Amino acid sequence: MFVKRVLVGAVLAALCSGCATGLNSHQKVEYTRYEAKGLLVEEKNPGTGAALGLLPGGGSFYGREYGFGVINLLLWPLSILWDPVSGYDAAKSINYQATRASIEAKEEKELNALDDQLKTGQIDVAAYTLEKRKIDRKYGTD
């Protein structure tokens, strides 16, 4: 009876916390482009996430999916079938979100500096437009 309650509680915790779904197709394209441009921020190593997925709940805990990690801990060794993938996907998702936040902050900082140059008369509208295009190309994924 106690084991059944613990299992039901663990399942509910996992459902409430969700699991790493990975990146959608658009995000995968952006991730690849950020990586190619050298803009990718790597907070978590996807290979480490996959390797830790072989340990009880390791991939999920590494990917900050604590509720799912508890479930995988309880279902180990069966969780070896999916937790490495979960750890890998979660690490990539964390890196994607960190990269997006970093890029947005850097782009905003550069655009604010450019706006200040225009306001103070250091550059004209034509120079402003050219510099803004450079910033857009630098941080864009197109």
Rank of each mutant, 00 (worst) to 15 (best):
T120S: 15
T48Q: 10
N72R: 15
G63S: 05
T32L: 08
G87W: 03
Q122L: 15
K109I: 12
N95I: 05
N45K: 07
T99E: 02
V6C: 09
M1S: 12
G140P: 04
L78N: 11
L52S: 04
A98S: 13
A50Y: 00
A98G: 10
H26D: 12
D89G: 05
L114R: 01
F68I: 00
T99K: 01
G121Y: 07
G63C: 07
A50K: 00
S25R: 10
D116F: 09
G140W: 04
L78H: 07
I80Q: 08
K44C: 04
W82T: 12
W76Q: 01
A14L: 06
G38M: 10
V11N: 09
G22P: 07
E65C: 09
R137A: 08
G87Q: 04
L74T: 10
C19R: 09
G121A: 12
G67N: 06
K138I: 08
V29P: 03
V6T: 14
I94T: 12
I71G: 00
G53N: 06
I103Y: 02
K106C: 09
E65A: 11
K134I: 03
K4L: 11
R5M: 15
G69A: 08
G58L: 06
K28F: 03
L114C: 04
V29W: 12
V70C: 05
D136V: 11
L12D: 11
T21Y: 06
L73Y: 13
L78I: 13
I94D: 02
L23N: 05
R64K: 13
G59S: 03
G18F: 08
K109H: 15
E42I: 08
A90N: 08
R100S: 10
G63N: 06
L7I: 14
N95Q: 07
D142T: 03
L81Q: 05
Y31R: 09
Q122A: 13
G53P: 07
A98W: 10
R137M: 10
A105T: 10
L40C: 06
W82I: 10
P77Y: 07
V11Q: 15
G67E: 05
L12W: 13
S60R: 03
R137E: 15
G67D: 03
L75P: 00
T99G: 01
S25L: 08
F68C: 02
I80H: 01
F68T: 06
K138C: 02
L40G: 05
S60M: 06
D142F: 06
K106P: 01
Q27D: 14
L40A: 03
G22W: 01
K92F: 01
L130M: 13
K44Y: 05
A98R: 12
L111T: 06
V29I: 09
R100H: 04
